[in-house]
């Protein structure tokens, strides 16, 4: 509990820092002194929404990764190695092409439905695989994702939509403004649902037989998890684009020290996810200022480094 409070304090500090890092200078003094309306405007329209978006997307994606890892009973899956993210991008493209007037919420729901179908397909393939070596599982997901991406890009290329597809595929928070990130609150609500159902997901992580023995309907638990993961992923992709590695490394790091009892580990995963995304985004804003490196890139570097560390750890518990 004390550790959690400390972690929360750390994330709050990062969030505060995020409010004051950017192209235009906003200082506490300027805000309090009421000297410039401009500073207040920047704060309200850009900085606060961006920081909230980082918090919500970071915790949501990390928790999604955790849920997927419990459902697939594999340490190496996350929304971008299970066909989820790719399917969501496909959905975004389709709804943009076929019904361009659809409001944000509708587009997110279509993307979520596609993500659900793609992830269910992934789990279906896993069920039919007789020998599930731990490393083959994410490979199957990556291949499935590649097939979906190929169809997405085929269509996008024909209709000159490649740029939008790239935007959904690469996370970037620089465009987050008031009125354009609120979908992420849906993700936050779903994360709360995941916490309420944490015991059920932990039981599912023990395997189908244990789940049945303990009187839970395995299929129903999996369905609930899939809906949460798909909608959170769709909300993140619709607002700021895919954040790679997050759902992979954060649950693994937390699992090392806190274990996988989700009632206990989920708050840690949510906080660490938010913290990591905040740190990466702030770094991206500072490194080549006044320009920005998108979070897709910074997270890719940091995430792959952490992932390599996890893989090379001496007594890595694969699978």
């Amino acid at each position: 509990m004390k550790g959690l409070v400390l972690a929360a304090a750390g994330v709050t500090a990062l969030a505060a820092a995020s409010l004051f890092v950017g192209v235009s200078d906003v200082t506490v003094g300027a805000l309090l002194g009421g000297m410039s309306d401009e500073a207040t405007q920047v704060m309200l329209v850009s900085r606060i929404p961006r920081t909230l978006a980082l918090l919500l997307a970071g915790s949501g994606m990390a928790v999604s990764g955790l849920i997927l890892q419990m459902l697939a009973r594999n340490r190496f899956v996350e929304p971008s190695t299970a066909g989820t993210a790719e399917s969501a991008v496909f959905g975004m493209l389709m709804v943009t092409l076929l019904a361009p007037g659809t409001p944000m919420l509708g587009r997110m729901l279509v993307a979520g439905a596609c993500a659900l179908a793609g992830t269910a397909l992934f789990l279906g393939i896993l069920r039919r695989m007789p020998l599930r070596s731990p490393l083959v599982v994410p490979l199957v997901g990556i291949m499935l994702g590649a097939v979906i991406t190929a169809s997405t890009e085929f269509v996008a290329y024909r209709f000159d939509m490649m740029q939008s597809v790239r935007a959904w595929e690469t996370g970037d928070f620089s465009g987050v403004l008031r009125g354009r990130y609120e979908l992420l609150w849906i993700g936050a609500a779903l994360t709360a649902v995941a916490y309420a159902a944490a015991d059920r997901f932990t039981v599912a992580g023990l395997g189908e037989d244990f789940t049945t023995n303990l009187g839970l309907n395995h299929r129903r638990v999996v369905s609930l998890g899939l809906v949460i993961v798909s909608l959170v992923t769709a909300a993140v992709i619709a607002t700021c684009g895919m954040i790679p590695f997050l759902g992979l490394v954060v649950p693994n790091l937390v699992s090392l020290t806190r274990g996988d009892n989700m009632r206990r580990s989920l708050p840690w995963v949510a906080l660490s996810g938010a913290g990591l995304v905040l740190a990466c985004d702030i770094a991206g804003r500072l490194v080549i200022r006044p320009y920005e490196i998108p979070i897709g890139t910074t997270m890719g570097i940091v995430g792959s480094a952490i992932f390599l560390y996890l893989l090379l750890r001496k007594n890595a518990h694969a699978g």
């Binding site: 419990m70 009973r73 594999n74 340490r75 015991d199 932990t202 039981v203 992580g205 023990l206 395997g207 244990f210 303990l214 009187g215 839970l216 699992s255 274990g259 996988d260 009892n261 518990h317 699978g319």
Partner: peptide, 17 residues
């Protein structure tokens, strides 16, 4: 078992029903 649970947590899940 892929999930990392402590022995006490695992046993406690026996009470889940």
């Amino acid at each position: 078992m892929t999930a990392r649970l402590t022995v006490r947590d695992l046993i406690a899940f026996g009470r889940y029903p």
